[in-house]
Design a protein around this nucleic acid. Structure first.
Lengths: 352, 352
DNA sequence: TTGTAAGCGTTATCAC
DNA sequence: GTGATAACGCTTACAA
């Protein structure tokens, strides 16, 4: 703990600064800086010497000093929400995070991850601290809700921000989503109808979350596009348990649907299990469709038919977008393809 | 873009600094600093005025300036590995991240997340950059491998580090794990033996990863503790697909096991599905045991018996530990409880 | 109890 | 092509 002050000891314990590198290379600090930032013109020979000295001393610019001096932290903030009952990061968000990281890390940009609970009290205070402390150059927000007050706040704080998803109302920032935001649902519904399903149920999630609202709306619209099709919508908190219960309620009712579409794969899997336990064969008696296309859908029997969204790509796209706002986007804007219906074993022709 | 220089405009566009707050409160900059760091003694009245001024101006200390001045970035780095075939963050790691974040965020410490592929070329260069740029005050490493060279490097760079898991050989840092590191496996094996299983197979993961090695070793030892029990071990890359294949190989062999224990839940689920497709009833013909206790194990039929590890708690514990190293740990060291065997539908008495 | 002033390690501007 | 020098916004002795 106690540090002695003899020059040698101090020397050994102090980490190299730009001044040390400059001294070792026999040049000025500016020269070193220029070499490392590709600015001014430094002769080949000097550049070599400087690089060698830096490597020798294991020096690279202090991120704090760079941040202070140039007002760039070289970090992007990401706020992810977890649902109350699942403590961990939702699988889809994991994929998004991976995509974001894949864009940032080659540019040596850091990803500052914030995990929050929905409806947390200090919501705005949290964003206020985040912006006024200037820890990040820009923010990626996810999971917009109805009446989302974050954007207005961030706008006032002049924090460059991009939303992954679609906002409920216009926001003063860009957002990244597939077009239309509910894409994929139509394919699922059409597939079921093509296979003779007349009565299709949708087990959705909490509609204060815009994504849930959009998905349910897409279901309604898809059903409305076909004559003579009955769509039943029920809303849950997004929890697999509730989805299972709703499934039973639906299947036990007199006018039971022959197909159920869920707002997520976990919900679909839990629903499928409940149906099977209740004596319904999947897909002979009831077809099941999930949403997201998580790997786990392949590990159940029957395998889950689902609307597959490319979370990693979504992450890449939103990362590119915030970097573009900051004027440092690499290459071309990644394209976001519409979710793709993956037909597996859990869907089949409607029973007679 | 172009910024005008009229005082008012400049005023409007410049964000407040400590000097502005000091001016607004009619005090010196140091007074403001003292109030926000709880150092010196500032009178109640002055404190009030300063806080009011800061709130008014929406000021809080610039993290870069604080970092530069005090050599504390108030951020912890976390390096997580993804396997090659799964692009996203492994579910168990998600839970760990959530636990870490839960400890850091109340202290207003940032979590810098790095996602890496195993066997990436620039492994050491990556850590070198990370340490020499001093972006973080400390690092949390996961997923130690045999011949892990990261620790020696980080030690030389004098980067405070903690490992989540158990190292293959002594490391110059603390590590956090349950005791013993293979705990939980014995309970699974004992449970199977108690139910009459004589021949138990273990489908493990790539043993360059220490955790996989330890788990397999724990299986061997657990089997060895009981007389007359046959244990068969096979090793895969950790992928569910391979696990499924191995399962078929095992079950189709003449001396087939009556129970299979897997190194992870996804592997177990994929294995269970393969077994069922091959005509084996679970658990009547073969018992299946997973490892980790992920939520998805409850969404399959039969539900997966598994050794449940508390990822969130592991995250909390390792976060506490690195903070302790940095002298800023809050409260008591969290306790890590041994994984718990959760018996569900996929295990039963061995067939006659 | 409060203020003054010297840096923290870098980069940008301007000389030379 | 290269080097002084002045910031960037804050903390902390030390002085008052």
């Amino acid at each position: 703990m106690a540090e002695t002050n003899t020059p040698e000891t101090a020397q050994r314990h102090r980490r190299a600064t730009i001044a040390d590198v400059a001294a070792a290379a026999g040049v000025s600090r500016s020269a070193v800086s220029k070499v490392f930032n590709g600015n001014g013109h430094i002769s080949k020979a000097t550049t070599e010497r400087i690089r060698a000295a830096a490597a020798e001393l294991g020096w690279s610019p202090s991120s704090s000093a760079v941040a202070l001096r140039s007002a760039r932290t070289n970090a992007i903030g990401l706020v992810v929400y977890r649902s109350r009952d699942v403590i961990a990061i939702p699988p889809m968000s994991s994929a998004v995070i991976a995509g974001i990281e894949a864009v940032l890390s080659p540019l040596d940009l850091g990803l500052l991850l914030y995990l929050r609970d929905r409806n947390q009290e200090d919501e705005l205070a949290f964003y206020r601290r985040l912006t006024s402390s200037r820890r990040v150059d820009g923010m990626i927000l996810t999971d917009s809700v109805v009446d989302d007050r974050r954007f207005e706040m961030l706008e006032q704080a002049r924090m460059p921000t991009v939303l992954l998803g679609t906002p409920a109302a216009p926001i003063p920032f860009r957002h990244v989503d597939v077009d239309p935001p509910g894409a994929g649902m139509d394919a699922a519904v059409a597939h079921l109808i093509r296979h003779g399903h007349i009565h299709i149920a949708y087990v959705g999630g909490d509609e204060t979350r815009v994504a849930a609202h959009i998905r349910r709306q897409a279901f309604d619209e898809s059903v409305a596009q076909h004559d003579g099709i009955v769509g039943t919508v029920t809303v849950t908190s997004y929890s697999p348990d509730e989805a299972a219960q709703e499934t039973l309620r639906l299947l036990r009712s007199p006018d039971r649907p022959t197909a159920v579409v869920y707002a997520s794969d976990p919900m679909a899997m839990a629903g499928m299990r409940a149906a099977k336990l209740d004596g319904f064969r999947v897909p002979e008696d009831v077809s099941i469709v999930g949403f997201d296309g998580l790997p786990m859908g392949e590990w159940v029997e029957p395998q889950l038919s689902t609307v597959k969204r490319d979370g990693v790509m979504r992450g890449r796209a939103v990362a590119w977008e915030i970097l573009d706002v900051l004027g440092m986007a690499p290459g071309e804007r990644p394209e976001l393809h519409a979710p793709e219906l993956v037909i597996r074993g859990s869907t089949a022709r409607a029973p007679k």
